[in-house]
Nucleic acid binder design. Structure first.
Length: 613
RNA sequence: GGUUCCGUAGCUCAGCUGGAUAGAGCAACAGAUUUCUAAUCUGUCGGUCACAGGUUCGAAUCCUGUCGGGAUCACCA
């Protein structure tokens, strides 16, 4: 759907006709004319000046008059220096709206028959989701929606880190201190319940550690280390080592991990139970956020994968074996380092699992590519992973993308779990909904609705504010999350865009006439209508661009600008009591299509629209 | 130190595949509702686009360097 095709071809032809230069219409760029000048679209003639050795204004004038002669849709032009500003006919704009109205899924591309897995969320099972996960989930989900709009067949997936020392800590703490309590018996959401035991473990461990530091044994460790640090500083750094050596709790946790790896029945049973609680909790959060997954992978199933893939690659000469038996890949000729793939005891490392999981996913889904939504601290990891996949000639290697994003900071600085500054996802969601409730009560607009309807609207508004606040920022940028601003519902926010949509729905409810009658009779459009249409015709390009760059913020900014244009239009132009019947119908259709595009754009961001607010 | 990402208004962010006088929102101030939802609209105030060079008719945008901040450079995941 290229609305400006005719203009580009016209310009290409005019350049050839006037100067004999051949410029393909795909290479002709027209941009929207800035509002301080007269015109709708601008063609910059400077690039032609060098070749033609003529004055910019002369070229612009000649092309302008040629276009007016040759194209019906160009009704005027104005030249400012090397800028040719073209004015298009009202019928052109009206025709654009006609074309948009005829589309079933305006903005969406047709299928490209390619399948892509989008991985996001991927939590650990020892604690609840936090603000960082929210950014991850919003980005992943949104990119998934955007890729669907670009014609891809999408599978949403995640890799759940359900094994390892962390979950064993929670298990151990529950065994020791839980006295048989459950999420049901305590009324605590499952993921928080398990997370609480993780915290309990840490607390007990710290106590044990500080007791140890008073002992003679500790004194010997300190002295024998020959460290120049004070005793206090020394033991700050020694914590991990203590966990792996002297700590009783550490030993117990490690024993539990070993038992798990051996397949000990009672350990597995406890592990399954605790993870089950966590999943039940996660499901609630996912449901509240409006996201779901098609295919979930668990680290407990995949952590042994990859070894055979590596051995296969070893046989084919992609990798090499060191004297100690460990397997490496040398990526120095690609600007990277040497990377270990298998330890000398044959066990795998992190990247080995990823290689194995990727191949497993290919066996399961035969995808053409994958998008990994993972924070930018792992940029190098994915560079290495993708290079390895390429060298092994994996069939999906060319379709691998790392959707990298910056960390979320608080106004007070970084989130740190040790300092208790982590913002919990469920708390945050509750807060924004409560804020929506307060503001809604002041307005009183939805009071007459049923309780469940009201709750549904408040959820949409609160989450709309939160999600938009996060998704409007470009992924690669580190962002500051100010809880106060995240619940703002005025200005450049989700609710502002929702409000434009709600106004449109209100107009539509009150439009009782038959909108399906012809609206060709409308002939002269005003600047507010034109601005809206000019904005609407960009939508397919915006979707394409967002897909190519895996950048939802493109859509977010587009939706805001469109809502802004609509609010202005709504304020300046009468719709239901327009001057003429033709105007009334035209404006209703224009409103309806704007509403449709706003809703579609917000859907691509994972944000729902209320009908009233 | 090597690599990499970021640096635009007091704050949060757009604009970056080179185009006209760099835009929004928030905050502050002044206005708009007998009219379709005021979570709206209009106006005022606010800038060394980190800095210095270079390429170009033209640079916030591309290149080089400097400064500042983050990340990464594990037989951790």
């Amino acid at each position: 759907m290229d609305f400006l095709y005719e203009i580009r071809v016209g310009l290409s032809n005019a350049i050839f006709e006037c100067y004999g230069l051949n410029i393909h219409h795909n290479d002709i760029q027209v941009s929207e004319t800035r509002k301080e000048f007269n015109g709708d679209y601008t063609y910059v003639v400077f690039p032609l000046v060098k070749e033609l050795k003529l004055k910019p204004t002369d070229i612009a004038k000649k092309l302008g008059s040629t276009l007016v002669d040759n194209l019906d849709i160009v009704v005027g032009y104005e030249c400012v220096q090397g800028f040719l500003n073209l004015k298009l006919s009202d019928s052109f704009w009206i025709d654009c709206l006609h074309r948009i109205s005829k589309e079933n899924k305006y903005g969406y591309a047709t299928s490209n028959y390619k399948k892509v897995l989008v991985e996001f969320a991927s939590p650990n099972t020892n604690k609840p989701l936090h603000l960082g996960h929210i950014r991850n989930i919003l980005l992943g989900w949104s990119c998934s929606r955007i890729l669907i709009a670009n014609g891809y067949d999408i599978i949403n997936t995640q890799i759940v880190n359900d094994r390892g020392i962390a979950i064993c800590k929670s298990m151990l703490a529950w065994q020791k201190f839980g006295s048989g309590s459950t999420p049901q018996s305590t009324g605590i959401k499952g993921d928080h319940f398990v997370g609480d035991y993780y915290v309990l473990f840490e607390k007990a461990f710290v106590e044990e550690y500080s007791t140890f530091q008073q002992t003679a044994e500790a004194q010997i460790v300190y002295v024998e280390s020959g460290s120049s640090d004070t005793k206090e500083d020394f033991f700050k750094k020694y914590k991990n080592q203590y966990f792996n050596t002297y700590s009783t709790l550490g030993a117990e946790a490690r024993t539990m991990l070993l038992n798990w790896e051996k397949g000990d029945q009672s350990t597995l049973e406890l592990w399954r139970q605790m993870n089950q609680w966590v999943y039940e909790g996660f499901d609630v959060t996912y449901r509240n956020m409006g996201v779901d997954f098609d295919s979930i992978y668990y680290e407990s199933d995949t952590y042994l994968l990859g070894k055979d893939v590596i051995n296969d690659g070893l046989d084919k000469g992609y990798f090499y074996k060191k004297d100690d038996g460990s397997v490496w890949v040398d990526l120095s000729n690609a600007g990277m380092d040497q990377k270990i793939l298998l330890r000398n005891d044959g066990t795998s490392v992190y990247i080995t699992q990823d290689i194995g999981t990727a191949r497993q996913r290919y066996l399961d889904h035969k995808m053409d590519g994958m998008v990994y939504t993972v924070a930018d601290e792992q940029d190098y990891h994915f560079k290495v992973l993708f290079e390895i996949a390429k060298r092994m000639g994996e069939p999906y290697a060319d379709g691998l993308h790392h959707l990298s994003y910056g960390m979320v900071d608080l106004p007070t600085g970084k989130m740190k779990s040790r300092e208790g500054t982590v913002v919990d996802a469920d708390d945050l969601i509750d807060e924004v909904i409560e804020e929506a409730r307060i503001l809604s009560a002041e307005r009183g607009e939805i009071e007459s609705l049923s309780k469940p309807d009201q709750e549904n609207i408040l959820r949409k508004i609160g989450l709309g504010a939160l999600k938009y606040f996060i998704i409007k920022v470009q992924p690669q940028k580190r962002m500051t999350f100010d809880p106060k601003e995240s619940v703002d519902m005025q200005g450049q926010t989700g609710p502002y865009i929702q409000n434009a949509y709600v106004r449109i729905q209100s107009v539509k409810r009150k439009m009782t006439d038959n909108v399906h009658i012809e609206w060709n009779q409308y002939e002269e459009i005003n600047e507010f209508e034109k601005t809206l249409i000019r904005h609407l015709i960009n939508f397919p390009d915006i979707i394409k661009q967002a897909g190519e760059q895996l950048d939802p913020s493109t859509i977010a900014n587009f939706a805001y600008a469109l809502a802004k244009d609509y609010h202005r239009f709504y304020h300046e132009v009468r719709i239901l009591n327009a001057e003429t019947e033709a105007a009334k119908i035209f404006r209703t259709v224009l409103s309806d299509r704007t509403g449709y595009v706003l809703m579609t754009a917000m859907d691509l961001l994972g944000i729902e629209m209320p009908e009233r607010m």
